[in-house]
Simulated assay, not measured.
Amino acid sequence: MTQPLWSPEAPNTVIAGDNLPVLQALPGSSFQLICIDPPFNTGRQQRAQPMRTVRDAAGDRVGFKGLTYQTIRGVLTAYDDAFTDYWDFLAPRLEEAWRLLSPTGTLYLHLDYREVHYAKVMMDALFGRECFLNEIIWAYDYGARSNRKWPTKHDNILVYVKDPKSYYFNNGEVDREPYMAPGLVTPEKVARGKLPTDVWWHTIVAPNARERTGYPTQKPVGVVKRMVAASSRPDDWVLDFFAGSGTLGAAAAELNRKYLLIDSSAEAVNVMRRRLDSTTAPPQFLRHAE
Rank of each mutant, 00 (worst) to 15 (best):
residue 1 M to L: 10
residue 125 A to D: 13
residue 172 G to Q: 07
residue 39 P to N: 06
residue 173 E to D: 11
residue 158 L to C: 00
residue 244 G to M: 01
residue 166 S to A: 14
residue 230 A to N: 03
residue 269 V to Y: 01
residue 163 D to E: 09
residue 87 W to Q: 07
residue 280 T to L: 12
residue 190 V to G: 08
residue 69 Y to S: 05
residue 60 D to N: 14
residue 51 M to I: 15
residue 195 L to F: 13
residue 124 D to Q: 10
residue 152 T to G: 13
residue 279 T to P: 04
residue 257 R to V: 03
residue 39 P to M: 07
residue 201 W to C: 09
residue 228 V to W: 02
residue 91 A to D: 12
residue 4 P to Q: 06
residue 154 H to Y: 14
residue 142 Y to W: 13
residue 109 L to K: 01
residue 251 A to E: 04
residue 242 F to H: 02
residue 138 W to T: 02
residue 166 S to K: 14
residue 147 N to F: 12
residue 274 R to E: 14
residue 103 P to R: 02
residue 52 R to D: 14
residue 62 V to K: 12
residue 240 D to W: 01
residue 149 K to M: 12
residue 255 L to P: 01
residue 266 A to N: 10
residue 11 P to D: 11
residue 92 P to C: 06
residue 273 R to D: 08
residue 25 A to S: 14
residue 38 P to L: 03
residue 167 Y to Q: 02
residue 231 S to D: 00
residue 265 S to T: 00
residue 12 N to S: 05
residue 107 L to Q: 01
residue 87 W to T: 09
residue 113 Y to W: 15
residue 134 N to L: 04
residue 128 G to E: 02
residue 98 W to C: 10
residue 167 Y to V: 01
residue 76 L to Y: 10
residue 231 S to E: 02
residue 74 G to V: 05
residue 255 L to I: 06
residue 171 N to E: 11
residue 154 H to P: 10
residue 136 I to L: 14
residue 100 L to T: 05
residue 287 R to N: 09
residue 243 A to V: 00
residue 37 D to V: 03
residue 182 P to W: 00
residue 222 G to A: 14
residue 77 T to F: 09
residue 113 Y to I: 10
residue 214 G to K: 03
residue 63 G to L: 03
residue 280 T to S: 14
residue 279 T to Q: 13
residue 256 N to T: 09
residue 256 N to I: 06
residue 71 T to R: 15
residue 85 D to P: 03
residue 116 V to S: 10
residue 167 Y to D: 00
residue 57 A to R: 15
residue 114 R to M: 05
residue 20 L to V: 05
residue 50 P to H: 06
residue 211 E to N: 02
residue 4 P to Y: 06
residue 246 G to P: 01
residue 230 A to M: 07
residue 135 E to M: 10
residue 289 A to G: 07
residue 211 E to V: 03
residue 227 M to I: 06
residue 135 E to Q: 15
residue 30 S to C: 05
residue 40 F to T: 07
residue 106 T to Q: 04
residue 289 A to I: 08
residue 163 D to G: 06
residue 48 A to W: 14
residue 123 M to Y: 00
residue 210 R to P: 10
residue 15 I to R: 00
residue 102 S to P: 10
residue 85 D to R: 08
residue 94 L to P: 01
residue 77 T to M: 12
residue 286 L to S: 03
residue 95 E to L: 09
residue 180 M to P: 03
residue 92 P to F: 10
residue 185 V to F: 02
residue 271 V to K: 00
residue 30 S to P: 05
residue 124 D to C: 08
